[in-house]
């Protein structure tokens, strides 16, 4: 007997949401453990070693450290659900407010980086698979492997030295030049869109010249992964019999590769791209510190230096949540897009 389809769907959706909830819960539990249990004395982490006894006691009670661990975790959880990430000690503002303020800049940079990565990575992977084990494949693979192996923060420094200092092709650190700062009204938080909305072509150009290096570097970083995965997916597809059939029927090579094989490869590639988007959000931590980009990464970096745990953990939760949501979303997309994954298995 087959169960009614609606019921099956419903069960799938519930299970899906449940697993998402468990993962997010795990993320929060991890940050709680890191913030409260891993440090030998969390109070000391906050007030420092020279604080008077009274201050120490007050913070101790404020943190609720006299209560059992389980109660502490319950409080932590309920605070987070209400959007209370605590106050950042270095900026003295609520962490969530800080994070949301910095997030658009990171998102803008990571998105453009991802677009660059897709634009170059997918064709590279396709070419690599098409000329499998011939010299274009070797060259392209090496380019990708270098992207895997190079410390991105170092590449950023070197790029800054060469293209900004020596050649002066691009602008230096920051988002726009100092005298352009705050000129454009903040609408979307993405400087490229905002400056266009305000009709400031000059600022738009300036922003592009500031963004070029970090975005290209992030693009290269994601390209390494995207091209590698594209190659392996395309290799599989090109070995299928339908490709042979298409060729036998006289289809042109371009159409065989682009229309037949790549279309089938597109579904797994969605997952790859979603994963690399998450990776970019993370990779931007190091890139942002190099380029003085006012995003989450830079915020985290200065919080780390100031031992500002509320901000660090808040940032981890935010980026982690986006990361988890991206994974889940790509999984969902995969299931919708690929009819094979709907019936029976999984």
């Amino acid at each position: 007997m087959r169960k009614p389809r609606v019921l099956k769907r419903l069960r799938g959706v519930v299970g899906f949401l449940l697993s998402l909830a468990v993962t997010l819960f795990g993320l929060v539990l991890l940050t709680f453990l890191i913030g409260r249990v891993v440090p030998i004395d969390p109070v000391l982490k906050i007030v420092g070693e020279k604080a008077p006894e009274a201050v120490y006691q007050r913070v101790y009670l404020e943190l609720g450290l006299d209560k059992p661990l389980l109660v502490q975790f319950g409080n932590y959880l309920s605070q987070l659900v209400r959007g209370d990430f605590g106050v950042s000690f270095s900026t003295t503002r609520p962490v969530l407010k800080d994070l949301l303020g910095f997030f658009p800049a990171t998102l803008e940079l990571a998105t453009i980086g991802l677009l660059i990565g897709i634009f170059f990575g997918v064709p590279m992977g396709v070419a690599s698979a098409y000329w499998h084990d011939k010299w274009p494949d070797h060259v392209l693979r090496l380019v990708g492997l270098v992207g895997y192996s190079v410390p991105i923060f170092w590449l950023g420094l070197v790029a800054l030295f060469v293209f900004y200092y020596l050649l002066n092709w691009v602008s230096g650190p920051g988002r726009v030049d100092v005298f352009f700062q705050g000129v454009v009204p903040n609408v979307t938080g993405a400087i490229l869109i905002d400056s266009l909305l305000a009709g400031e072509k000059e600022i738009f150009r300036n922003a592009i010249s500031h963004m070029a290096l970090p975005a290209l570097l992030l693009g290269y970083y994601s390209l390494a992964y995207i091209s590698r995965m594209t190659r392996s997916v395309m290799l599989q597809e090109l070995n299928h019999e339908y490709v042979l059939t298409a060729r036998l029927k006289g289809a042109r090579e371009v159409s065989v590769v682009m229309y037949h094989a790549l279309r089938n490869a597109a579904i797994p590639l969605i997952t790859v791209i979603a994963l690399s988007y998450g990776g970019l959000l993370e990779g931007s931590v190091l890139i942002e510190t190099i380029f003085g980009w006012p995003g989450i990464g830079n915020y985290l970096f200065s919080s780390l230096l100031a031992a500002d745990m509320n901000a660090v953990l808040g940032g981890t939760i935010l980026v982690g949540t986006v990361f988890v949501l991206l994974n889940t979303f790509s999984d969902l997309l995969y299931r919708i897009a690929d009819p094979r994954s709907q019936d029976g298995k999984a």
Binding site: T23, G26, L30, I34, P39, F323
Partner: peptide, 23 residues
């Protein structure tokens, strides 16, 4: 499930937070 939670969390950030807490 535990493994999946660890896989789902961004690696570098987790490491950063952990070292920040541990010293």
């Amino acid at each position: 499930r535990v493994t999946d939670v660890f896989l789902a969390v961004p690696k570098l950030l987790l490491a950063l937070a952990f070292v920040a807490a541990l010293g």
